[in-house]
Design a protein around this nucleic acid. Structure first.
Lengths: 208, 208
DNA sequence: ACATGTGAACTGCTTCACAGCG
DNA sequence: CGCTGTGAAGCAGTTCACATGT
């Protein structure tokens, strides 16, 4: 497949969330204009984004909401269940383990890994805290395709290396460091410091 | 000031984190080449990014680490203290309230707001849980410049409207909805669903 | 008539390549 | 000589505008 821009993928996610919202309200069809308004973009942008993957609309009519949302789910890889583990049973790991958003989107979080013996073995709702030492074994057994890294900055690269070697397919990194992974492993990062600094930059250099 | 690309600001944050790291190790100078290697970009990109704000290096020598990091801190608006409140004392709000990363970067989190009477009045470390009803009063009194929204999707826009009316300067949104704010208010969003879907898209449409 | 799908034009970010200066 | 700083070139993402199909 032709290379798709990061920004396009993010907008597809957005469109999907709007579609799910209006689908729940029973609205049968929508248009590129509607989606653009909800997503703060233009109708041409919406049509261009979709056009990379096929033509899903009817000229003169718009898009079938259930059909388009199904297509987007498939495009985004949401047609299947994804098993996720969280690494690091600290504050962020704990919040993520209990975050309902994962399940709602079909992501199954069944375990958190930590090396602290006082945490190992406990249960947080449906999620159990397991020994970090068994991480490789569990990934190799196919228990997870995605790892969420919620560990301190100085151990993040080491853990990333370990899960990559064990065959993980994607990593979502919450540690405030730039990770290096082979480019057949998908990597995304959520960096609080970066977001806050983007805010303070914008506030400080107000243009409007 | 000329408009600066989002991507440039994010890279400046990255450069700063590298500079702080090597500054702590006592390295006196660095080069665009060094910063590029650490940040996964090119030396030309680094120089171009910096050039929007002045010329901080010495030809033939590179950059003074303490000087460049000080300049970047100033550019990013980190030369002052920022007061931050967290809105929503749920799982995410709790994790954020305890997150050390804020303080390390000079962000002062002194309160979490919630409307649940059973939570109001309690203390989490240095952070107290306050009544959401007093949010406007406190913002108007100048207690916070930045609000972090950690509330359910369906109340996020309403709370954003309230803090904007009270005069907040920036919002970091963790709720999975697209917020609308006047464009003199800085807005950033962290959307877990979007990050996960970017991962599953990449895994599903593996190109390499 | 109406909204999609898409080449073409445009805008803006990135990369190149070299002049400038320590 | 080495590395920065920067116009110019190249490339990627967005917007335009209209032909196309219902």
């Amino acid at each position: 497949m032709r290379r798709i821009a990061e920004s396009t993928v993010r907008r597809l996610s957005l469109y999907l969330s709007f579609l799910e919202e209006i689908e729940a309200r029973g609205v049968p069809t929508t248009s590129s204009e509607d989606l653009a308004r909800l997503g703060g973009t233009t109708s041409a942008q919406v049509r261009k984004d979709l056009s990379f993957f096929g033509s899903f609309g009817k000229r003169g009519l718009g898009y079938s909401v259930p059909e388009l949302s199904a297509r987007l789910r498939r495009i985004l890889g949401l047609g299947r269940q994804w098993r996720v583990c969280i690494i690091g049973a600290g504050k962020i790991g704990a919040a993520l383990a209990r975050y309902a958003g994962f399940t709602e989107r079909g992501f199954i979080v069944s375990a958190v890994y930590d090396s602290d013996p006082s945490k190992i073995g406990s249960r947080w709702g449906n999620v159990k805290v397991r020994d970090e030492a068994s991480l490789e074994r569990d990934i190799e057994a196919g228990d997870y395709q995605i790892a969420v890294l919620a560990v301190p900055a100085d151990s993040a690269q080491n853990l990333a290396d370990r899960v990559v070697r064990a065959g993980i397919k994607g990593i979502l990194n919450f540690a405030p460091v730039q990770l290096t992974v082979p480019n057949d492993v998908a990597l995304r990062a959520v960096n609080m410091a970066m977001e806050l600094e983007a805010l303070t930059f914008a506030i400080t250099n107000k243009v409007d």
